[in-house]
Each structure stands twice: as C-alpha cells, then as structure tokens.
Amino acid sequence: MAQVPVQTIHRDPQLFYWILIPITLVMILTGVLRHYATVLMASAPKRQDMPTLREQRSLMRGINLRANANAISPASFQARKDYLVNAYESGAFLKEPEKKGQGAPNPMTDPAAMEGMMGMMKGNMAMIVPQTLIMGWINAFFSGFVIIRLPFPLTIKFKSMLQAGVATRDMDPQWMSSISWYVLCIFGLQSVFNYLLGSDNAASQMAQQMGSMGPGAGAQMFGPGVDPDKQFQGEAENLAVLAHQYTLEGVEDRILNTVRV
C-alpha cells in the first residue's frame, strides 16, 4: 500500500507571530469597535404622536373585537360593531381625515419612512465599511502567505475554501492561506464576541442579517406605504360579516357537568 508522503513546507515561525495573531487581533478589535459604533449611532426609536397612535390603536380595537367578540353579549357586540363600522367607513380615526381616499403616501417622500431606512442603512454601513477596509488591508499586506497547517486531513474540495489567494495546484488542502484565515475569523468569532460583549451585541453579523430580514409583522402592518384608510375599510368589512357567538351561552350547564364536588 503506497503511503502518500506527508507534504512538508518549511515556514518561518515568524509568520505565525506577524500574520496569524495580527489578523485575529484586528478582527476582534474591529468587532468590539463596531459594537460600540452601532450603539452610539443607533437612533432612539422614534416617538409616535397622538394622532398616529390613535389611528393604529383604533384599528387594533377593531381587530380585538373581531377576535374576541365571543366574550361579550350579542347586544354589546352589535352596539360596538355598529359604532366601529360607521367610524371606520367615515374615516373618523384617520390621522389626516382630509386625505381620505388619496391612496398611500409614497414612502420615499415620507420623512418618517426615510428615517427608518436611514437606520437600516447605518447598520449596514457599519458592517460593510470595516469589512471592506480590512479585506483591503489583508490583501495588500498578507496575500499569498500560507500560514498554518490544519491538524486533520481534508479532501480536495476544501482547497478553494482554505487556500484563497494561493494559486498552487499540488499543495495539500490542509494548508491554509491568510485570506482564508480572515474569512474563518469573520464567521468564527461569534462566541468570542458573545463572551466579550454579551449575547445581544451588535458585532455579530448573524444578528445583523436577521435584523435586515424584516423586523416582523408588526412593522409591516403599520409600516410606510400602507394606506390606513384601506385597512380601516377592510376591517369594517370583516366586522360587518362576522357571525357572533356568545361563550356564555350554556355555560351553567357546562359548569354543572364538569365541576365535581
């Protein structure tokens, strides 16, 4: 059985001190810096003024009524339904009643919407700018170095992942280039940041990516570009066709059947 000779490369031990450690250190420090930069740049959640709040909460009231109508008597439900449907259709709860029926405002011209986008931009910038700078720095100074040898064998497929920037065909995939080390650092320092900055830190990019996925359905509902009048009309229709059932109907028999003394 032919033994594959172990590839040996004589490296200057100084490579270890002057490339591996600096890259790791710089990555950690930028992570910490990014965390504090994000904390500093974060704009406080914007306060909503009373008319906006009224608009949203009045809609919530209709939704609550629709969902939990069973808890109240048919007469009470009818009274509330009549009132809410009427008010929704006439636009009594709208923030700007005179703008009823004009459609949703363009989110690009709405300053409130712009502010939200700016916040997102700022977060993304805090990710992109340092990443670009460090990548450039590593490319300029450390490209082409093979710095460590992983202590376990790997298949050939890993070559492109671990030896980025080193264009040698015959080198064992165990050897790792500096740029690959950098990429590994980006993804692998998560737990270090958790340890240093607490688990809800801004340095980890996983959180960043999750954040940009969309802040949830709540923001969608009242987000920019949604016409509140349309929402009100839809809710009025939902309420108008709702069939009401009273939970208290026959509750005394249910109790008598279930309670055993």
Binding site: S73, T247, L248, V251, E252, R254, I255, T258, V259
Partner: peptide, 12 residues
C-alpha cells in the same frame, strides 16, 4: 342572569 353566567365562566 348574566351575572350568574359571568361567574360560571370565571370558574370555567
């Protein structure tokens, strides 16, 4: 009558 039913519901 409604009061009775409310109390029943709370027990339920």
């Amino acid at each position: 009558a409604e009061s009775i039913r409310r109390f029943c519901r709370s027990i339920e």
